[in-house]
Design a binder for these strands. Structure first.
Lengths: 201, 201
DNA sequence: TTGGTTTTGTGCGATACGGTACAGAAATAC
DNA sequence: GTATTTCTGTACCGTATCGCACAAAACCAA
C-alpha cells in the first residue's frame, strides 16, 4: 500500500511529473503486447513518456513494475466484472454481458492481446514465483466475483456456485487464449453465448 | 518433412552427432520452462548437448527452432490424445482419461509447466505471427481430434460434436493455465472430473 | 534568500544476447 | 590414397539489455 498519490501531498522536494496510475496504464500496453520478458525498459519508459531512472526510482526493477501493472490491470478488470454482475437482468444475461465485454477487450486492435494474466503472466510463472503468485491471486479474485454472483442468483444449488464460477472462469481463460492466437471476435462470441446456458444449467 | 534420419543414409560428408528428434525433445524442456523469448541460445544448446552453430545449422534461427519444437511437441501430444480417445470405454471415461493424462503432464515437477502452446506460444503471438499460426493450427488439430471422438460416440446430436470439442478444448486450456500458475494436480483433477458429465450431457 | 529534499535526464558500464566466420575433424566417393 | 563434402567447436562481432552514478533542476521550509 504505497499509493501516496492523493493523500500524501506534503512532498518535501521536487514534485513528480507523472501520476502512478497514468504510467501503469501506458506501460500496460507494452507488457500486454510483448510480455514481461519481451518488453524492454526502453520501450516501457518511452511508452510512459519518462526516462528509465524515473521508472526505476518509482517502481523498482522491471519485475516490480510488471507486478504493479498486473495488479492495476487486474483490479480494474475485477471492478468492471463486479459492475456488470451487479447490473440488471438475469444471471444468464449478465454473464453474457461479461463475456461480450471481455471479448471486445481481448480482440481489440491492433494486437488481439487477450488477457494480461493468461496471455503474459503465465509464461513467466516457472521463472518468477512472485509473478505467478500475483496472477494466481487475481484469477482467484475473478472466480470469487463470479461465485458471489452465482450464489446470489436463483439458479439450482447444484452445481455449487463455486463450481459454476470455476467453469465460467475456465471459459473466459480459453477465450483469452484463443483471442491472443488470432480467433475472430464473432467466433468467440458465438462460443461464449453457447456456453452461457450450460454454465447456468 | 525433412526427417532424413532413417531413410536418407547416403550423407556425403561427416555424419551428425545427434538426432533431430532427440534435440527437439531436450530443447523442449527449456522452451517449456522459460518460453521462447526467455530461453537463450546458450541454454538451448547446453540442454541439447551441442554448440550454437550446430543448432543454427540444423534448424535456422531461434524462431524456427521454437516452431519445430512446438510442432514436434504438438504432434506427439495429438498422437497421445488420439490414442486415448481410440481406447476402450465410454466417451466419458475416455475424456476423463485424456484430462487425467494431461494434468499429469501439466503438473509434472519441477516446473508445473502446463501446455507449451497455451503457456509459452500465446505470449509471443502478437510479435511473432508464425508462432501464432503454428499454435492456432495445433489447437485446431486438438479440437478436430476431440470432435471426431464425439462424432463417433453415441451422445445426443445436440450439442454438436464440434461444440462439444470446443468446450472440451476450453477446459483443457484452462487446466493448462491454472497448472502453470501453480494449481495442485488434485484440484485440477476434481475440476476436470466435474466437467466431463457437463461436456457429455 | 538560503538550505534541504526530491525528481529529472544525460550518460555510462557491465553483461548477455543472437548470430556468424573460420579452421579443423570425420565421413564418403572416386 | 586423394578429393570432396559435411559437421564440429572455438572465437568473435555488433547490439541491446538492465541497472545505476551523478549533476542539474524544481520545489518546500525557514
Amino acid at each position: 500500500m504505497r499509493t501516496g498519490t492523493e493523500i500524501t501531498k506534503r512532498s518535501r522536494g521536487r514534485p513528480r511529473g507523472f501520476s502512478t496510475e497514468e504510467v501503469l496504464e501506458k506501460v500496460r500496453g507494452v507488457f500486454l503486447a510483448k510480455g514481461f520478458t519481451g518488453a524492454s525498459l526502453d520501450e516501457l519508459a518511452a511508452a510512459a513518456g519518462l526516462n528509465r531512472p524515473s521508472l526505476y526510482a518509482a517502481f523498482g526493477d522491471k519485475e516490480q513494475l510488471y507486478i504493479a501493472t498486473l495488479r492495476f490491470y487486474g483490479t480494474k478488470s475485477i471492478e468492471g466484472l463486479d459492475a456488470i454482475l451487479a447490473g440488471p437482468g438475469t444471471i444468464q444475461q449478465r454473464l453474457a454481458r461479461v463475456y461480450s465485454a471481455a471479448i471486445d477487450l481481448y480482440t481489440a486492435p491492433p494486437h488481439r492481446p487477450g488477457c494480461m494474466i493468461v496471455g503474459t503472466a503465465a509464461v513467466e510463472s516457472p521463472t518468477y514465483p512472485k509473478i505467478a503468485a500475483a496472477a494466481a491471486e487475481l484469477l482467484a479474485a475473478i472466480e470469487k466475483s463470479l461465485e458471489r454472483a452465482f450464489a446470489a442468483s436463483d439458479l439450482p444449488a447444484r452445481p455449487t456456485p463455486s463450481a459454476r464460477a470455476r467453469m465460467a472462469g475456465a471459459i473466459m481463460y480459453a477465450i483469452a487464449i484463443r483471442a491472443r492466437l488470432g480467433a475472430k471476435a464473432s467466433d468467440l462470441k458465438t462460443f461464449a453465448n453457447s456456453m452461457v446456458p450450460t454454465i447456468c444449467a
